[in-house]
Write a protein that binds this DNA or RNA. Structure first.
Length: 732
DNA sequence: TCATAGCCTG
DNA sequence: CAGGCTATGA
């Protein structure tokens, strides 16, 4: 605008430079990338946290975790259903319960802890030491079990398993299983050398190896295992017969069934398989759930448990209820409870901290400390697909929606009112996109959109959250919940009862998504907007709120101050679809309207910065489309062999005009002025000549054309100043 | 510092 | 169409 008329070469050049820079920037996409990077950071974080898939992390700590996870995933997951990891996790977790085989059990359940171990044990784990005291107990039991298992291992089925360790088809196969297999393999090999040495040696060797391997395992793992074992033992002790049933109850056995069946009734085999599943199940939530279940079981079976435990799980001790054991069990339960609680607290705290902190330049760094949280996320986002695109989108959605929410929720927890301010700052970026997301979902891909939420929804979160503190749950509800208190915007839902819109006609008309946006954008006096907007889209209420909030950033306080004045008047606080339509028609006359002109022609709109810029933006977009079409058809003409600009003309029945008319006068209920055809023709020829001359090499080559075209604006008919111009124009 | 143009992206 | 960004002019 500024440089319409007489622009010296210098000016042009400078402008070109400007353009060039802009182009370069855009070309490099640095700007966009930078912006994207911001959002991406969060996404990445989430993604990382969410999916085990994440490959190596730059950070040492993270790497370990990820690796562990990776391993597990690889073994588990190769499965087709990566997506429902959460589900799987649940089933898996539940499926394997009582296993005496320390290794197998430990591996699975301990997994979470394993991940942690490298970094240092969480304070809470100390309690596990108590468990250690019972180590002897366990070991003895283990030994027994192992013996039994070994005995079984001789059976063909078992033997086969070892060699066949790489069961490709097995979905369940997990890292632990592989370990087991390896171990087994080794043993057989040794034995092969000296076949004469029989079962006894073999057994011993196995034991030896096992012990060694166990020792090698990180302390954390040990502790965890022990804990689990104790659980299981207690559980087992209750009743062998129940053993399986309980397992089933606790977890979904369905998944691992095939493997199990192979091994047959043998617990050993089942253990292995189970262990695989267990390993696969990294979700701490499941672990917690299981633990809970176990505790409950314990409580119920308290008496019976003790004796068995004494006798070591396998040999189902028939011993009567031992009071000592009962007490022990209680203690254990208590300890576990405490541990779990503490762990959960830690997790929650960490997560909160992470989210509460504004994304740092290197937000990822924040994660290493978060040993636990990452694990948790996977469950939350169990919907993740390996598919990058899909995952990305989801993540986007996830990030946009969830991220802010946590902030809101956590922040709001202490005091709602106070938080509001903070939220407003944080929200704008995020929420805006959310709104967009909604639009996309609703308009373009309903299915897709619907998928988003379900997948991400509380279900997933809650699933993992057995103990989860309430704070964790609302991420989703928040969008709806959070806004209401935020502002004087008014009641979210019922607010729009009265459509007191001054210009009902515009409002009543079909509301396109634009209407919502427009209105929202324009005003911040949400009360009105909501009323106007929501009637048509009850579902959009939330959106409206969020939008309004977001938009509030651009609102002038001054404008805000006097909202009510307009309520009774004809002046709208936002731009309606009709305004858009009107603007488009105006574009036939003026491509470069000044802000003053806009104010004159949209007198029924209360102007503020937002409205003005929005209108300007509209025309900017119109121009963009216009010039794109021009360039497109100019090039097309060149390709078609047109040699001279004179050959080009724009008539009402030419493609170019159709395209333009379709864009600005979709309904074709407005007679496009001839002048516009002339201007279009001039523009087209300008483009043609410029391209033929090879000017398009210069990034700013369009600038010159713009300057020419901007002088071709004609006056806009007075009728457009009338608020009802549309009716008048279209009716004629 | 603000308003705007233009470009890019979603 | 809206957001975001940069460059630019006043």
């Amino acid at each position: 605008m500024p440089d319409h008329d007489s622009d010296s070469l210098l000016n042009r050049q400078t402008k070109r430079r400007r353009v060039d820079i802009g182009v370069k920037r855009t070309v490099g996409s640095t700007a966009s990338s930078a912006a994207a990077s911001k959002s991406n950071v969060l996404r990445k974080l989430l993604k990382r946290a969410n999916s085990y898939e994440d490959t190596m992390m730059p950070f040492p700590g993270t790497t370990i975790i990820s690796q562990l996870l990776k391993n597990n995933m690889a073994k588990n997951g190769g499965g087709p259903e990566r997506g429902d990891r959460g589900d799987r996790g649940l089933s898996n977790a539940s499926s394997d319960a009582p296993q005496e085989d320390a290794c197998s059990n430990s591996s699975q359940d301990s997994t979470p802890q394993e991940c942690l171990s490298p970094f240092g044990r969480p304070p809470g784990l100390a309690t596990f030491d108590i468990e250690r005291l019972n180590d002897e107990h366990l070991r003895a039991k283990r030994a027994r079990v192992e013996n039994i298992i070994r005995g079984m291992s001789h059976s063909p089925s078992v033997v086969q398993q070892a060699p066949s360790s790489p069961r490709g088809g097995e979905v369940c196969s997990s890292s632990s299983s592989s370990r087991e297999n390896k171990r087994k393999q080794r043993l057989p090999q040794q034995q092969q050398q000296s076949f004469t040495q029989l079962v006894c040696q073999r057994k011993e060797q196995k034991q030896e190896e096992r012990r060694q391997l166990k020792l090698q395992l990180e302390d954390m793992q040990k502790q965890l295992r022990q804990l689990q074992e104790k659980f299981f033992q207690i559980y087992d002790s209750t009743d062998d017969s129940e053993h399986n049933d309980l397992h089933n109850d606790i977890g979904n056995m369905s998944e691992d069934s095939p493997t199990r069946s192979d091994t047959g009734g043998d617990d050993r085999g089942g253990d292995d398989l189970r262990s695989d599943n267990e390993i696969s199940d990294l979700d701490p939530g499941h672990f917690l759930d299981r633990a809970r279940a176990l505790l409950q079981e314990q409580a119920l079976l308290a008496d019976g448990e003790k004796p068995r435990r004494e006798g070591l799980g396998r040999s189902k001790g028939q011993g009567g209820p031992g009071s000592s054991m009962h007490a022990e069990g209680k203690q254990l339960a208590e300890t576990l409870k405490q541990e779990l609680n503490s762990a959960m607290t830690q997790v929650v705290d960490t997560v909160v901290k992470v989210f509460a902190k504004p994304p740092r330049p290197t937000p990822q760094q924040a994660f290493p400390p978060l040993s636990i949280p990452p694990e948790r996320f996977p469950t939350a986002v169990n919907g993740d697909n390996p598919n990058f695109h899909t995952a990305n989108q989801r993540l986007q959605c996830f990030g946009d929606v969830i991220i802010p929410n946590p902030l809101d929720s956590f922040a709001s927890m202490p005091g709602m009112p106070g938080t509001t301010n903070d939220q407003t700052e944080a929200l704008p970026l995020v929420v805006r996109k959310t709104s967009n997301e909604h639009h996309h979902q609703s308009s373009a891909v309903g299915a897709h959109g619907s998928q988003h939420h379900p997948a991400l929804h509380p279900s997933s979160l809650s699933a993992s959250m057995g103990f989860s503190p309430p704070s964790f749950r609302h991420p989703f509800p928040l969008p709806l919940m959070g806004y209401p208190f935020q502002s004087p915007l008014g009641a979210p839902t019922g607010s729009y009862t009265g459509k007191d819109r001054s210009s009902p006609d515009s409002m009543d008309l079909s509301r396109e998504t634009t209407s919502l946006r427009t209105k929202m954008a324009s005003g911040h006096h949400m009360g009105h907007h909501h009323r106007s907007c929501s009637p048509a889209h009850p579902g959009s209420t939330a959106e409206g709120l969020s939008l309004s909030l977001i938009k509030s950033e651009c609102s002038d306080l001054q404008d805000m101050a006097d909202i009510s004045p307009y309520s009774g008047s004809n002046i709208q606080e936002g731009l309606s679809p009709n305004h858009l339509k009107k603007a488009k028609l105006m574009f036939f006359y003026t491509r470069y309207p000044s802000s003053n002109m806009l104010k004159m022609f949209f007198s029924d709109v209360k102007f503020n910065r937002c409205i003005t810029s929005q209108l300007i933006k509209w025309f900017s977009n119109f121009r963009e489309f216009y010039y794109i079409q021009m360039e497109k058809f100019a090039r097309q003409a060149i390709n078609d062999g047109v040699t001279g600009a004179e050959e080009l003309s724009v008539s009402r029945d030419c493609e170019l005009f159709r395209a333009l008319n379709m864009h600005y006068n979709k309904a074709n209920d407005f007679e496009v002025p001839d002048r516009f055809l002339e201007v279009a023709e001039i523009t087209l020829r300008e483009f043609f000549n410029a391209i033929v001359a090879g000017k398009d090499v210069d990034p700013s080559w369009k600038k010159a054309i713009y300057k020419v075209i901007c002088k071709l604006d004609s006056e806009v008919p007075e009728i457009f100043k009338s608020p009802n111009c549309l009716q008048e124009l279209l009716h004629e």
